[in-house]
Design a protein around this nucleic acid. Structure first.
Lengths: 328, 328
DNA sequence: GCATCACTTGACACCGCTGGCTCGAAACGT
DNA sequence: ACGTTTCGAGCCAGCGGTGTCAAGTGATGC
């Protein structure tokens, strides 16, 4: 075992509390004692045991991040943002990847509850988290990101998905497209519904009946974009609006494989602007969500809450259209 | 605050230690008391405070993962593997993303040292970690993954990079290629050097002088693959061997942009087999590293070490050639 | 009916650190 | 010169558990 505060006290020939006081600056100390203590700390290579400190202070100086899947670059970006903010404040990040599995999420919620984390950043994949999470939320600070969660009274950080989607549709309209196809996200997910609503709103405003637009549902994963394309292409749209980039790319691949030229024969617009969007050919025109920033802000809100500062009910970041090559 | 073991004891009308004994099974208890205790736990919704338990037991039931960048899908896969294994044993995962910055790595090492984690999984980006990490390694269990670390006496989990690279080069040779270009990884990195050695070995065995093969260095990132391509293409190779997929893709993009057809005019072989490899067009022929498995094994080794079981010095997983479309 | 034994149960001393409170001494005021 | 304030340092009681150890219980055997 490493040296304890007791060893330091003995070595510096002062009492335990004096060492503690010097190290935390929690009580005044004379220059002489301070020096003695610091010298002893250095000689011993003493490092305070944060378990003991946390127990006493009833804090853990750590926050959990519940996320469906770190392989998804959007989530990974959010995670990075959260991590950046936490590191800046010397908080630890406990990563919980649920792999879209509700049972795992529940078991994590239990684990985190026992762990007495100071707070949780929650990124839902279902919009309807298990009962355990509500339980956790009652005793722990929590903030939700990106996906609104039903019945969870927690600060929310996201972007205006409806507006972003509307902008995407309007751009396509402005380019002269009239034959649309839509790949929506999973039913019940707030982001998915908002984006769909945004698309439909813009189309309706341009005099196109949204109900007449071929619409397929995907699950936000690449593969589901492919299947959606299979469904949509026979209707011969000139542009497909996809609720996220991964599905847009799946769609793109299927279209390419089917011999269509993109964007000449078919245009595709994604959503999120994940790094991947620039590496596919043609590079994806999409709506940028400031994912890293969302993570950062969420962490900041959480830290504010933990340190009993005022926290806004919700903060919305602005989505931003980014034009690349997949729209003609 | 939530209920403590004291509250449970009072409610069940037994002593503190009885509750503890029942909950941990550390001492025999009659069926009757057990039931009383369990009932009280359920009624109160009691959850043991793991901070207190950890302090007493001198364990944290958490391990740290030091990784350069979770956005890199290879690292993310390793992280998933580590996370899977840890979750199965109810260990927490503390994520430390260093963003390739040695100062950050050092500051994480200090933070982790104070935190008394049970162990560390370390994935180096430099092969030469800061002094703080060596310090940390002295007092903490640690296992390294993928990248060998100089002067760190810790179990290692990786794959045989030399063999994988040789296999890639041999495949190209078998397809009749004679004009090679190589994009190597950063100097000083074990994986990079091993892969380069593997390529050269195979070429030499086929009677090609490795020193005469145009070779560029990249930093494992996509952009560096592009610049390497700029350097290499004028030499008119028919195939380029890249030390990882990201650089291979960068190279691919540049080649495509320069009007070359892949694989007809130029073949490209990557390394790692990240998920991205299948989404680019043409899909990348590459050498698969079992990243998730590596993470899982590393975590397993670490857990074994923590629980004082026998741990092998090093475990090597087998790389595997995966043929797709980028090789003609 | 009483001693013995196997089994339970409860008291208590920590784990390492914090912080309120007390105490002594020096510095100040009148 | 004495009482009062001030400030630095030490004592000690926790934080919420765990696990050892000794005492207590009921059942059993003679």
């Amino acid at each position: 075992m490493g040296p304890t505060i007791k060893d330091v006290a003995r070595r510096a020939e002062v009492s335990l509390s004096t060492v503690s006081a010097v190290l935390n600056g929690s009580a005044p100390a004379s220059q002489a004692t301070r020096l003695k203590v610091l010298a002893a700390v250095a000689e011993l290579g003493y490092e305070p045991n944060s378990q003991a400190r946390n127990l006493k202070r009833r804090r853990s100086h750590a926050v959990g991040l519940i996320v469906p899947d770190v392989l998804n670059p959007f989530f990974a970006l959010v995670a990075e943002g959260v991590g950046d903010e936490l590191r800046a404040h010397d908080y630890l990040l406990v990563l919980c990847s649920t792999d879209f599995d509700e049972r795992r999420e529940a078991s994590y919620a239990r684990l985190l509850r026992a762990t007495r984390l100071d707070g949780i950043v929650h990124l839902s994949s279902t919009g309807l988290p298990p009962a355990e999470l509500h339980e956790l939320a009652r005793i722990s600070k929590i903030v939700t990101v990106d996906e609104r969660v039903h019945g969870l009274a927690a600060p929310f950080v996201g972007s205006d998905n409806r507006r972003g989607a509307r902008a995407a549709a309007e751009l396509a309209l402005a380019r002269g497209h009239r034959r649309f196809g839509i790949i929506a996200g999973p039913t019940g997910l707030w982001t998915a519904e908002q984006r769909l609503a945004g698309y439909r709103e813009a189309l309706a405003a341009a005099g196109i009946d949204p109900d007449a637009v071929p619409t397929a549902r995907g699950d936000y994963r690449l593969e589901s974009g492919r299947s959606a394309a299979v469904e949509l292409l026979p209707q011969e749209p000139t542009v497909i609006l996809a609720a996220n980039d991964l599905m847009a790319i799946g769609c793109l691949q299927h279209a390419l494989a089917a011999g269509l030229r993109v964007p000449q024969d078919l245009s595709v617009i994604g959503y999120d602007d994940v790094p991947l969007a620039t590496v596919v050919t043609p590079a994806l025109t999409t709506v940028r969500q400031p994912a890293r920033e969302m993570g950062r802000v969420a962490a900041k809100l959480l830290l504010d809450g933990i340190e009993e500062r005022e926290v806004p009910e919700s903060v919305d970041l602005a989505p931003e259209l980014v034009e690349r090559e997949s729209l003609a």
